[in-house]
Measured scan of single mutants.
Amino acid sequence: TDVTFHVNGRNLHLKGADEELLRRIEELIRRGADIEELEKAVKEWEK
């Protein structure tokens, strides 16, 4: 799945995201995470 999140005026584009990653990103956004936290979560998922 390709999806782009718009967070605090910045874009986080995910290519090939699975349901697990999407749920994790949505949860972080609900908690008020900043873009750096979201990018870190994506990097951890990519490993």
Rank of each mutant, 00 (worst) to 15 (best):
G32L: 04
I35V: 06
L14P: 00
V3P: 15
R30H: 11
D2F: 03
A17R: 02
E27S: 10
V3T: 03
G9V: 02
E36T: 06
L21Q: 04
R24W: 14
V42E: 01
A17V: 11
E26W: 10
E26F: 08
K47M: 14
E44A: 10
R31I: 10
K40A: 12
K40H: 11
F5T: 07
L21F: 07
D2T: 05
A41P: 01
L28N: 02
G9R: 00
R10V: 15
E36V: 07
K40Y: 12
L14A: 01
R23T: 08
E36D: 11
A17F: 04
L12D: 00
N8A: 04
E39Y: 09
A33L: 09
T1V: 15
L38V: 05
D34H: 07
I25Y: 00
V3C: 15
D34G: 09
K43H: 13
E19D: 12
V42M: 05
A33E: 07
R31D: 13
L21A: 03
E36R: 05
K47G: 13
G16N: 14
T4Q: 09
K40G: 11
E27R: 08
R24N: 10
R10K: 14
V42G: 02
D2E: 07
L22F: 04
K47Y: 11
V42D: 00
I25C: 08
A33H: 09
E19G: 09
T1R: 15
T1N: 11
L14M: 04
R30D: 09
G16Y: 06
L22K: 04
V7R: 01
I29E: 01
F5N: 14
E20S: 12
H13Q: 06
A33C: 14
A41H: 13
H6S: 05
R30F: 09
E36I: 06
R24S: 09
R30C: 14
V3G: 03
R31T: 12
R10F: 12
D18F: 02
A33D: 04
K47W: 10
L38D: 00
E44S: 10
V7L: 03
E39I: 14
E20N: 14
E26N: 08
E39K: 06
R10Q: 15
E39A: 05
I35H: 03
E26H: 11
A33Q: 07
H13T: 14
A17K: 03
N11L: 15
I29T: 01
T1C: 14
E39R: 05
G16M: 06
N8S: 05
E19T: 10
L12K: 00
D34T: 08
A17M: 03
L21Y: 02
I29C: 03
A33M: 10
G16S: 09
I29K: 01
H13G: 01
H6E: 15
A17I: 10
E39G: 05
E36W: 06
I35R: 01
H13R: 06
H13S: 06
E39N: 06
V3I: 13
K47N: 11
E46R: 09
E46Y: 14
E44L: 11
R23M: 09
L21M: 08
L38H: 00
D34S: 07
H13I: 14
A17P: 09
R31E: 13
K47P: 12
R23S: 08
K40L: 14
I25H: 00
L22Q: 04
K43C: 09
V42R: 02
G32K: 03
V7Q: 03
A33R: 07
N8P: 00
E44N: 11
I25S: 00
K47H: 11
E20M: 12
V3F: 15
G32D: 04
E39W: 08
T4K: 05
G9L: 02
E39Q: 09
K40V: 13
E46I: 10
F5K: 14
R24A: 13
R10A: 14
A41D: 04
V42K: 03
K40T: 12
E27M: 10
L22I: 15
D34L: 06
E39T: 07
L21W: 02
E37V: 09
D18C: 07
T1F: 15
E27D: 13
V7P: 08
L12P: 00
K43V: 12
N11A: 15
I35P: 01
R10N: 13
E26C: 13
K40N: 11
D2I: 04
H6D: 15
L21K: 02
F5V: 15
R10W: 07
T4P: 01
I35W: 13
A33N: 07
T1K: 15
I29F: 07
E26R: 14
E44K: 08
H6Q: 11
L28T: 02
A41Q: 11
R10D: 12
K40D: 14
E37L: 09
V3S: 02
L28V: 02
K40R: 12
G32I: 02
V42C: 04
E26M: 13
R23D: 06
L12F: 15
N11T: 15
V7A: 02
E26D: 06
V7G: 02
T1L: 14
R23I: 08
G32Q: 05
E26S: 09
T4A: 05
N11C: 15
E27K: 07
I35C: 02
R10E: 15
E19H: 10
K47T: 12
E46S: 11
H6T: 10
D34A: 06
V3D: 08
G32N: 05
A17D: 04
E26P: 03
F5D: 14
D18Q: 07
T1M: 14
R30Y: 08
A41K: 08
T4N: 14
E27W: 09
I29R: 01
E44F: 08
R30I: 09
K15S: 09
T4L: 05
I29M: 06
D18G: 11
I29G: 01
H13P: 02
N8D: 10
R23C: 06
E20G: 14
E37P: 02
L22R: 04
E20T: 13
H13V: 15
E27A: 12
D2P: 01
K15A: 04
K40W: 12
L12R: 00
I25V: 09
L14Y: 01
L28M: 14
E46G: 11
E27N: 09
E19F: 09
T1A: 11
E44T: 08
A17G: 03
R24L: 12
F5E: 13
V3R: 08
R30W: 10
K47F: 10
K15R: 10
L28F: 05
H13D: 04
G16W: 05
D18M: 03
D2M: 03
T1D: 07
I35Q: 02
L12N: 00
L12V: 04
L38K: 00
G9A: 01
R23P: 01
R23E: 07
L22M: 06
R24M: 12
E27I: 09
A17N: 03
E36Y: 06
K47V: 13
G9S: 02
R30L: 10
I35K: 01
H6A: 03
I25R: 00
G32A: 03
F5R: 14
T4G: 08
F5S: 13
L38F: 03
R23H: 11
V3Y: 15
N8Y: 02
R31S: 13
K15E: 05
N8T: 02
L14N: 00
L28Q: 05
V42T: 03
A41G: 03
T4I: 15
G32W: 02
D2R: 01
V7E: 07
R10C: 13
A41C: 08
I25G: 00
I25L: 09
E36S: 06
I25T: 01
R23L: 09
F5G: 13
V42F: 03
E46F: 10
K15L: 06
I29P: 00
E46V: 10
L21I: 15
E20D: 13
N8H: 06
L21V: 08
G9W: 01
V7S: 02
D2S: 03
K40I: 14
N11P: 13
K47C: 07
G32Y: 03
K47I: 12
R30Q: 13
R24D: 06
H6M: 06
F5P: 08
E20Q: 13
E19A: 14
N11W: 14
H13F: 07
F5W: 01
L14K: 00
H13N: 05
E46T: 12
E39M: 09
E44V: 08
V42A: 07
E27G: 11
N8F: 02
V42I: 11
A33V: 07
D34N: 08
G32F: 04
L28I: 03
A41T: 13
E39P: 00
I25M: 07
L22S: 03
R10P: 02
E20R: 12
E20A: 13
R31G: 13
L12Q: 00
G9I: 02
K15C: 07
N11S: 15
D34V: 08
E37D: 12
V7K: 02
E46A: 12
R24F: 12
G32P: 01
E27C: 10
E27Q: 10
R10I: 13
I35E: 01
E37W: 05
E36L: 08
L21N: 01
G9H: 02
G32V: 03
E46H: 09
V7W: 02
I29W: 08
L38E: 00
E19Y: 08
E20H: 12
E19N: 12
R23Y: 08
A17E: 02
E36M: 07
V7F: 03
E37F: 08
D18T: 15
L38Y: 01
E36C: 07
D34Q: 10
L22P: 01
E39S: 06
E44H: 10
E37A: 10
I29L: 06
H6R: 04
L22W: 02
H6P: 15
N8M: 04
L38P: 00
I25Q: 00
L14H: 00
N11E: 15
I25A: 02
G16L: 05
E27T: 09
L12W: 09
T4R: 05
K43T: 09
D34P: 05
T1H: 12
L21S: 02
R23A: 10
D2Q: 02
G32H: 04
L12H: 00
I29Q: 02
I35A: 02
E37S: 09
I29S: 01
A33I: 05
E26Q: 08
L14C: 01
G32S: 04
N11M: 14
